[in-house]
Nucleic acid binder design. Structure first.
Lengths: 218, 218
DNA sequence: GCTGTTTGTGAACAGTACTTCACAACTGGA
DNA sequence: TCCAGTTGTGAAGTACTGTTCACAAACAGC
């Protein structure tokens, strides 16, 4: 009933097809690619939540693909597959952002165990969100607060009436209300000269807002 | 009073220092780097909202840096500087995500005009957010709705009571309320068999949630 | 000192978001 | 057929969020 999509990236056709078969037999939906470059194309369309990638491939190898995947699709889990497996190799892969590591040759069960474990971790990840997420998102749910953050991001630091006038809001106490809200949530701070500015936290949030708008509108 | 931070990346020390001087004279705060690699280090710490980058540099060149910057810091504007400027060159840079293009040698005013224009666009970007942002963020401001999206992301598609039980909520009408909300905001859809699943829009949002939590917690 | 602007507080009110409840249509099996 | 579980609606109430207003301290300029 519930099918999870998994991507397999391996230039070795035999191995690739055998992995696909094992996973499909176990009820997963599988997308297979022969090269990292082809995989990136597919990923841009539809992002699976788990990727199996071979270390050694012509063109872009698994190790080169790792940081790209981690940056672009941070939620996606990655299992690295290697033929000539050494400790250094494994450590490098894990440090590079792989979530698990399979040495060739592996048995059917090794593969399935690794896959299930990765998906379990994913489940856990998704259901235990950071507590600060709630505060941040509640803050952002109000357009005035977003405008204040945007204005501060543009202008660096502003005084109270600067903000009020920039937003074109006649009632200054309304702005004050939202400033207080942002202040208690540590997104902005106020120094001795009473000027407001973004905290590092606030800057991250603004950055995320940009990401959101780019992704949502595209 | 209001100082904007600008990053300059150029291996040519003379040119770099002259750019820094021009910008500082005009009241900007400037961070200068001799290589793209050094710049990436600095960017991870503090992200300026405008970067001037030379096309030709030993190591990673401007064109290679472009996609990295665009992906990692989508809000940051990029002005590309080139010595051997051709049309192809310029077009490639703009298509690669540069926001403006300066040919060497340029005059002091050429530089300042380009910088001011980029900052103006930035201002505009920030103050005219997508209208759908408001809906999306209002949706996300509720933890139950986030949990529903997360559950659907993990399980692909679920029926009504699956969701209710997964979230451990005894009153099913409460879940219904939030499902309806998500449905009217086009983040989830329901097919003939009454199962709910994420829309493409909803998948994007979940992806953003991951990004947010990674960025906020780090 | 007076005057006007800036910055701020708290209480009352308005509006929205959320929850609860009572009820009902539908669905698949014994 | 009846029964139990599923899926859903709308109204009423509650809680929370946001707005407005009346007021005031701090400060700058004259």
């Amino acid at each position: 009933m519930i099918t999870e999509t998994i991507m397999v990236i391996d230039d070795d056709q035999d191995l690739r097809e055998s992995i696909v078969e094992i996973l499909e037999d176990d009820g997963y939906t599988v997308t297979a690619c022969a090269t990292a470059e082809a995989a990136l194309q597919v990923l841009a369309e539809k992002t699976p939540r788990l990727v199996l990638v071979d270390n050694m491939m012509p063109g872009m190898g698994g190790m080169a693909l790792l940081p790209l995947l981690k940056r672009e699709y941070p939620a996606t889990k990655i299992i690295m597959i290697t033929a000539f497996s050494t400790v250094d190799n494994a450590v490098a892969a894990m440090r590079g952002g792989a979530d698990d590591y399979l040495s060739k040759p592996f048995r059917r069960d090794d593969l399935l165990v690794a896959v299930r474990r990765a998906l379990e971790v994913l489940k856990f990840d998704l259901q235990h969100e950071e507590p600060c997420m709630d505060e941040a998102l509640t803050c952002l749910s109000n357009p005035i607060r977003r405008q204040i953050l945007a204005a501060l991001s543009v202008n660096g630091h502003m005084r109270f009436m600067d903000i009020t006038r920039t937003l074109g809001i006649s009632d200054h106490t309304k702005v004050n209300f939202h400033l207080k809200n942002l202040k208690t949530n540590n997104l902005i701070s106020q120094n001795r000269e009473k000027t407001y500015r973004l905290t590092p936290q606030g800057e991250k949030i603004i950055d995320c807002l940009h990401l959101l708008s780019k992704r949502i509108s595209s």
